[in-house]
Design a protein around this nucleic acid. Structure first.
Lengths: 327, 327
DNA sequence: TTGAAAGCGCTAACAA
DNA sequence: TTGTTAGCGCTTTCAA
C-alpha cells in the first residue's frame, strides 16, 4: 500500500502539499494539484483512514448492539441503519448481544476501545449507568433508557389500533401474547405500552383480555409451540390475538392443528410488520412499525450527538395497522 | 479518555513500562506491574485500539459484504460469522451491497481504506480481478470465484437428495424454481449445481423437470406472487417443487389460493433451511445448509489467510434433507 | 503557495 | 529491570 510519502516523492512535493489536496484545504496552485492527482492515480493511492482517524479523534464508526440479527425485526432495522449510516459516511460494527448482560458489557468495552463515535443499542439489558458513564453518544431503541436519547414506535397507539380492530370484528376474548423481557432491566413490549393502549380501548367495555408472557429465552430457532398450545388449551374461549409477527406465525400453525379457523374462529394481529406477515398463509394483519423511518431518525440522532448537538430524549414514531387476511 | 501517558505519570513510570504490562512483554518487576495495574484501574484506562492498529498494521476488522442482511439466509450467516469473529477477537463491518456492482465496488474501496484485515463476500457481482487486485485475504461464499478461496454448501448433493425424495414420493413432474443470478457474473443457485444434482438423479428415468428462473431483482420485501401464479397456471401438471425457503413460503400461499393441497397435490422442498420453514404451515421440508458450520469455516479460513497460511481454493460443506410436512 | 516539524496514542529497538 | 527515542500514516500549525 502506497503512503502519502510515496505520493509526495512521486509528485515532487512535500507530504503537506499532498495532504492539502487530499483534504482540499489551503492554497494550492492548479499545476501542483494536478501533479499530485496524477501521482495518486499512478500509485493507486488510498489514504489510510486509520491514521486519519487517529489524528482527528474521529473514527466514523458506529457500534450497533442488538439481541440478534436473525430476528427479522432487527435484521430489517440493521439493513436500514447500515444504509443510512453509509450514506453519511459512517461504518457499522455489528454486535449480537443475545440480551446477555456479560456480552453486552464486553461489546461496549470493545467498541469504546475501538474509538467508535457512537453506539446504537436495541433491547439493552444493562443498567442505564453503564451507558451514561460511557460519555459517548448513544441512541437506544426497543427499550426506554432514562436520560439517554430513545426512539420507539408508538406502542400505545399500536395497542389501541389492534384492540379497536379486534373489537370491531366482534372479539369477546382477546389475548395479548408477548415474550417477557429478557434480563433484569428489560421491559417486554407488552408492558412498554402495547398493553396500556389495548386496555385503554377496552376500558369502557365488559371485555377483559388475557395477558400472556412467554419465556424470554432467545434462541436462533426459537420455538414456542408447546407454550402456545398450552395457552390455547387452557383458554379455548380466546377469539382474538395480538402478538409479535414471529409468534403469529407459530400461532397460525397451532390453530391449524387445533382446527381453529383464522379469521373465522380467531382473529390474529401481529406487531412489527416485518417480512414474515406477507409470507404467511393466510397473510397476517399487522401493526406496522416504520422501520425505515425509525432507522433514518436513529442515524440522524446519533450523528447530531456526534456533532455535539442536543437531541430530544424521546422520539416516538407513529404506527399504522395493515389489515390483511387474519382479521 | 486517559492515555498511556496519563497512566505512566500516575504510576510514576515511563510509557514503555506501561506498554510492557499492557502487552505482557519483556521483564517487569511484580511491584511495577502492580503499580501500573493500579493506575490503569484508577484512571479507568482503556488502550486506544486505533493507535495500536496503526502501529501493528493490523486492524482486527473484517469486512462482510452480502446482498442484504434482510434475507434470512444471510442474516443467520451474519449472526454466526459475527459470533465466531468475535470469539477470535475480530470485529465485523457490515455492508449490504444489494448485488449492485457500484455499491459492491464502493464498499470494497471503503474497507480497504479502513485497513480491514480481510473481506468476506457473499453472492459477489464483481469481476474476480477486482478481488485478486486487492491483495487482501478474501473468502467468497454463495458464488465460486476462480483463484479465491470459496466455501459453498454441496449443491449437487442437495439437488440429488431433493430429486430422490420427490421421486420416492411419486412425483412425475417436478419443478425447480430459483431466482436468476443478479449481475453479469452471478450464477444462480440453480446453475451452481442444484440443477445438475437434480438432473443426475432423473437421468435414468423418463421424468423431465420444469426449470424456472425468476426475476433476480432484490427487494427488501420481495414478492414473486404473480410470477409464481403464472408458472402454476401454465404448468398445472407440476406435482413437486424444489425452491428456496423464502419462495417456498410464497408457493404455499399460491397453492392455497389455487386449491392445490400440500403435500397431496404438490410436494414442496425448500433449500437453505433457515428459520422460515418451521414457521410455515405446513412446516416445510428443506435441504439444510449447515450455516453455523459454514460460518465457522469461513472465519477460520479468513484468519488463516490473515496469518499468511495457505487455504484450499474450494471447500464444500455437506447438506442434509430435513423432511417435515410438505413432502 | 509551499514545506518543516510536531503530534494523534501506541509499540519496539536500543541503550542504560 | 527500566527509559529514551524513533516511528506507524496522517493533519496542521507556523514559518518561509
Amino acid at each position: 500500500m502506497p503512503k502519502i510519502n510515496d505520493v509526495a516523492e512521486n509528485a515532487g512535493v512535500s507530504i503537506t502539499t499532498v495532504s492539502r489536496v487530499l483534504n482540499n484545504r489551503g492554497y494550492i496552485s492548479e499545476s501542483t494539484r494536478n501533479k499530485v492527482f496524477l501521482a495518486m492515480k499512478e500509485l493507486n493511492y488510498q489514504p489510510n483512514e486509520m491514521a486519519r482517524s487517529l489524528y482527528r479523534k474521529k473514527s466514523n464508526m458506529i457500534g450497533l448492539i442488538i439481541p440478534t440479527v436473525t430476528n427479522p425485526f432487527f435484521s430489517e432495522l440493521t439493513y436500514h441503519l447500515e444504509y443510512f449510516a453509509n450514506l453519511k459516511g459512517y461504518k457499522l460494527v455489528l454486535c449480537n448481544s443475545m440480551k446477555n448482560i456479560q456480552k453486552e458489557h464486553d461489546y461496549i468495552d470493545m467498541l469504546k476501545k475501538n474509538q467508535v463515535d457512537g453506539i446504537l443499542v436495541g433491547s439493552s439489558v444493562l443498567d442505564v449507568e453503564h451507558y451514561l458513564n460511557l460519555n459517548l453518544p448513544i441512541v437506544s431503541f426497543e427499550r426506554t433508557l432514562a436520560n439517554i436519547p430513545t426512539v420507539t414506535s408508538d406502542y400505545i397507539t399500536g395497542g389501541k389500533l389492534a384492540a379497536q380492530l379486534l373489537l370491531d370484528k366482534g372479539c369477546l376474548k382477546p389475548a395479548l401474547i408477548f415474550q417477557a423481557g429478557g434480563g433484569p432491566h428489560h421491559q417486554s413490549l407488552l408492558t412498554a405500552g402495547i398493553g396500556q393502549g389495548f386496555e385503554d380501548v377496552l376500558k369502557g367495555t365488559a371485555i377483559r383480555p388475557v395477558y400472556m408472557e412467554l419465556d424470554p429465552d432467545i434462541n436462533i430457532n426459537q420455538c414456542h409451540g408447546n407454550e402456545l398450545l398450552r395457552i390455547f388449551n387452557e383458554h379455548p374461549e380466546i377469539d382474538g390475538v395480538l402478538t409479535e409477527d414471529l409468534l403469529a406465525a407459530e400461532i397460525i400453525r397451532i390453530c391449524n392443528r387445533l382446527d381453529k379457523k383464522i379469521p373465522e374462529d380467531i382473529k390474529l394481529i401481529g406487531y412489527d410488520d416485518v417480512m414474515i406477515p406477507s409470507l404467511l398463509s393466510p397473510r397476517l394483519s399487522s401493526v406496522r412499525q416504520p422501520i425505515k423511518e425509525m432507522s433514518e431518525y436513529i442515524i440522524e440522532s446519533i450523528i447530531k450527538q456526534i456533532k455535539g448537538e442536543v437531541v430530544p430524549m424521546l422520539h416516538t414514531i407513529p404506527v399504522t395497522l395493515i389489515e390483511r387476511e387474519t382479521t
